[in-house]
Design a protein around this nucleic acid. Sequence first.
DNA 1: TCTACAATGAGAATAAGTCCCAGTTGCAAC
DNA 2: GTTGCAACTGGGACTTATTCTCATTGTAGA
Lengths: 163, 163
Amino acid sequence: MVRARLARHDSRYTPGRRRLVEALMGAGRPVTLTEIASSAPDLPVSSTYRNLSVLERSGVVNRILIRGDRAYFELAEPLMSHHHHLVCISCGAITDIHLDDELEEMIDLRLAEAARRAAFTPLRHMLDLHGHCSRCLHLVEDLTTEDGATNILRINPPAHHAG
Amino acid sequence: MVRARLARHDSRYTPGRRRLVEALMGAGRPVTLTEIASSAPDLPVSSTYRNLSVLERSGVVNRILIRGDRAYFELAEPLMSHHHHLVCISCGAITDIHLDDELEEMIDLRLAEAARRAAFTPLRHMLDLHGHCSRCLHLVEDLTTEDGATNILRINPPAHHAG
DNA sequence: TCTACAATGAGAATAAGTCCCAGTTGCAAC
DNA sequence: GTTGCAACTGGGACTTATTCTCATTGTAGA
């Protein structure tokens, strides 16, 4: 199936690309290029970047932008089931979560309405929840202010950070 | 109100920060630091980066990560009403959209359930729709394949790109 | 086998964003 | 108003993820 999607873009399923797909399968969570590189040090960095782009263009992997300083990669549907993310804004840890189909459909429906009004052609929605994981919560004194403002403390990632 | 939120973090509402808030108000859409810099060339880059971080930490602006190569900034709630984005993956154009409160509440409810199971403390959800704007649609031949894969073409931003 | 084109890999190049530091400013206490 | 402390500023150096270049290699099909 990966091969077919690549072929559709005149691209080949080469050993290097297979290694990448397997690495993403093995990780089971979104990973950065640095993480891939450290688990497969023989893969050249430039080739890995190029191949991740090719795989993305062919719809095999998704590039997810959660932190400004680096990109995360994960397998696209249907290699990976549709899901969303809990993103810790302190340490960057990412947890996959699933929502029920009814809600997903309702979201898609309403987004499609808004898209039509803007003459926009939808491809896929991205829904993430930003907050603090249990290990970072203690770093934040109080989460809300008297005027209801969220009190976001961007703190240097602690030692346990997962990304 | 901006001043109060800054004061909560032992920060001051200086002229440079006021300029930034006014620039974001004037833009009316998410903008990059480069855009801010070109509309206010006298603001030093390093100060602008620093001040945007301070304003973000105080809950005055939101940093939105939509393209991997740069960050966008917009005013946070309630200076700006809660909204979501249509993001063109070809040219990067961003359009603000609003969903009805009922759906927003349902999303928050289900996300909160998932967060509780993961011992995660929610702060805010991010929901964007990725696709192609009307001006970029012609760059894509066919949007779906026979196996249902989305056929995403990442193309160099055309001349009209909005950021 | 030949040909055309995709893929590779090493390093140079790019650019967003951060860091540093010396000088300045704002706020609060006296 | 003076003073002291801490926040702020600005310019440039620096870091680093990502992209680009290009010469070489691999491969599918004629």
